[in-house]
Amino acid sequence: MLFHFWEYFLYFLYKEDQHSIHSPYFFKLYQDLKAFLTNNKKGKKEIELQRKKFLSSKEQILRKDYGAGSRWSKGEKQKVATIAKSATSPIKSSLLFQFLCKLTPANTVLDLGTSLGINTAYLSSVTKGDLYTFEGDPALAHLAGANLNFCPNVNKVVGNIDNTLGKVLEGIEWVDFVLIDANHRYQPTLDYFNAIAPKIHKESIVVIGDIHWSKEMKQAWEEIKDMPSVSSTIDFFDCGVLFFNNYGNKENYILAL
């Protein structure tokens, strides 16, 4: 927890404003993003209604988790409302993912970490082809499934992502947008990115969640953003965004939403 607070302090010190963005492409992207967030600040009505249902739910489920940071013991029940409060992205983050997805061809989209399906639903609304959403916890996948019934382009993949991701990737030629928000550990994060990397093209965008959550996640983020295939990055603190097209010199921006 102290690490996370320290990272936010550093982020607050180093974050830039729009006047620090020299690239015309990223200047316009940031301007468009801020306008999009302002114009859609209440989110998508039907998705936010489902979020409210989760937040008010009295249901409890048995959790099974493959990632880091669990606050429950094996076999312990957890309230759906608690999960909705602590493990789902705020509206602004969901809108960010949706906006970034729209910048890509959005024909093939991967969502690693379905949770309750809130981000999945936002991504589904702008996905032109197939969206594959991965969840390791069967109970969470079941809840998300009810939320995603109105999203015909969503393919739900249940099971340990270490085992399921490779099988799905075998049947995919290219990946346009990826949200990696699953196992918040160093090695799995690197493994997921390296598995996806051969399917990435110049117009792809990859988002990695919780890059400042722990020393492990920060290390994974630093190593991935320095890879030769990555042309530029944006650090929004809660997530990092990877670009692969050559928009000039490689830039690593630190920006606020």
Rank of each mutant, 00 (worst) to 15 (best):
D191F: 03
S125N: 13
N107Y: 05
T82G: 02
S73Q: 15
K92W: 12
T164G: 07
W174T: 15
S86P: 00
E48C: 02
D176A: 03
F97Y: 15
F177N: 10
A146M: 06
L33D: 00
S229R: 12
W174V: 11
I118Y: 02
F26I: 01
Q31D: 13
L165C: 09
I172A: 01
I83Q: 04
S73R: 14
A35R: 14
V206M: 01
K215H: 05
P138N: 04
F26T: 02
F236Y: 13
L148T: 04
N40D: 08
V126A: 12
I91W: 04
F150L: 02
D235Q: 12
E173R: 12
S89E: 06
Q78D: 01
L10Q: 11
D210H: 14
I47F: 10
I61E: 04
V158Q: 06
G166H: 07
A139I: 09
E173V: 09
S86R: 15
Q98V: 02
S125Q: 14
G136W: 10
D32N: 15
I161G: 07
L13H: 08
G136K: 11
F9Y: 13
G129D: 11
G69M: 07
G43Q: 06
M227W: 11
T82C: 00
K74R: 14
N149D: 12
H184E: 07
E76V: 09
G69H: 12
D226A: 15
D162T: 02
G129C: 07
E203K: 15
K156M: 15
F134P: 05
D238H: 13
V241I: 14
P90I: 05
L116Y: 05
A195G: 03
E216W: 10
A220I: 06
G209L: 01
I21C: 08
K64A: 06
G166P: 05
C101Q: 07
Y8P: 01
L55A: 08
E16N: 09
S70M: 10
K52G: 00
G248Y: 07
K28V: 01
K64F: 07
F236H: 11
E7T: 04
K218R: 15
M1P: 12
A220L: 04
Q219L: 12
N183Y: 10
Y253Q: 02
T164N: 06
I208Y: 08
N40A: 05
Y253A: 04
Q60E: 15
S86F: 14
F193V: 05
I83V: 12
V158D: 06
A81Y: 01
I200K: 11
N163F: 11
Q50F: 14
S204Y: 08
N245P: 00
E170Q: 15
P24D: 03
Y30T: 04
D238A: 02
T189C: 09
K45A: 13
G166I: 03
D176E: 09
R71Q: 09
E222W: 02
